[in-house]
């Protein structure tokens, strides 16, 4: 499922009469099977952007094509769109509502035309994918689970419909380091089985390590896009790295001030470690 976005804009008017341009003239494309990160400061339009992608809002200008079809023309099958694009919003655990975990996860499958046994099979698959023992958890109240478990149940509800495109809005905010890593590896796993993944995150290390392409938004505009490493290298130049610098990049910049010039392609921790190993061992210290 490729997505093509042309001159996309979204604006609204505040009660005071002030016009807000949340997104301005965005053109880009997302290929089938890609893992795309979206970064930018709070209020840059990230959330509006994914709401438009999921068809939850209609653009005030421009077009979004899914496999060549404009999703905002009259007559476009919105139900199909909902099955194709799954969105995991920020704090999805707040959206649980059903009396049992099984019912909660099954809710999105209600109008999919699946038989009862197919629904159970899907729910089992989704919960097991999220690391649950289906028989153990199916009859429990979702509200009695821990925060992390609730989040996984909510995500099971999204993946149960087997969307071809999965969008995550700040999926790892509030998780501890191991929770973050487990979750990112789960997302990577979904991506490796062919799902197109779009992930909004403030966590630069996660974006650097896991995504293949990056879209950078600032004040509603797409200020950069491309392969993740290239984008990070360019952002480093911009405002001297004030915008989007990983910790490894920060250390490289500090070392440069101390007259140790390392490659500007160093983005992640592993890059930095291997460059330093070479530099310091090669320098005769080892």
């Amino acid at each position: 499922m490729s997505i093509k976005i042309e001159k996309l804009s979204y604006s609204y008017t505040l009660p005071s009469g002030e016009k807000v341009e949340a997104l301005k003239d965005i053109t880009c494309s997302i290929e089938t099977g890609d893992f795309v990160g979206i970064m930018g400061p709070t209020g840059c339009g990230k959330t509006t952007f994914i709401q438009l992608l999921a068809g939850l809002r209609s653009p005030t200008g421009g077009r979004i094509y899914l496999d060549g079809e404009d999703i905002n023309v009259r007559g476009y099958d919105r139900n199909r769109l909902r099955r194709t694009v799954g969105v995991v919003f920020q704090n999805p655990e707040y959206q649980l509502f059903a009396a049992t975990v099984e019912k909660d996860v099954a809710f999105g499958l209600k109008y999919n035309g699946l038989s009862r046994s197919e629904v159970t099979g899907r729910v089992r698959w989704a919960l097991e994918t999220m690391g649950f023992d289906f028989e153990k958890v199916r009859a429990q109240s979702p509200l009695a689970l821990s925060g992390g478990e609730k989040r996984r149940v909510a995500i099971a509800g999204v993946i149960a419909t087997k969307p071809k495109i999965l969008i995550f809005d700040e999926p790892i905010a509030g998780l501890d380091p191991y929770g973050r890593r487990n979750f990112l590896q789960f997302i990577r796993g979904m991506n490796q089985t062919g799902t197109t993944v779009i992930m909004v995150s403030h966590n630069l290390e996660a974006l650097a390590e896991y995504t293949r392409h990056l879209l950078v938004l600032e004040q509603g505009r797409l200020i950069d896009s491309g392969p993740t490493r290239e984008v990070f290298a360019r952002l480093q130049q911009r405002n001297n790295g004030a915008f989007g610098q990983t910790e490894a990049q920060r250390i490289v910049a500090l070392l440069a001030e101390g007259n140790l010039a390392l490659s500007s392609a160093i983005i992640t921790y592993d890059d930095l470690l291997s460059a330093l190993k070479q530099e310091l061992n090669g320098g005769g210290a080892g």
Partner: peptide
């Protein structure tokens, strides 16, 4: 991780700035 690779910084740094200082020190010695 550098220790494991045979690179021994003098002290274990806590901040980025301390890290850079340790690395520069090691380099000036060699």
């Amino acid at each position: 991780d550098l220790r494991q690779a045979g690179v021994h910084l003098n002290h274990c740094p806590l901040t980025d700035e301390e890290l850079v200082e340790e690395i520069c020190q090691l380099r000036s010695k060699s």
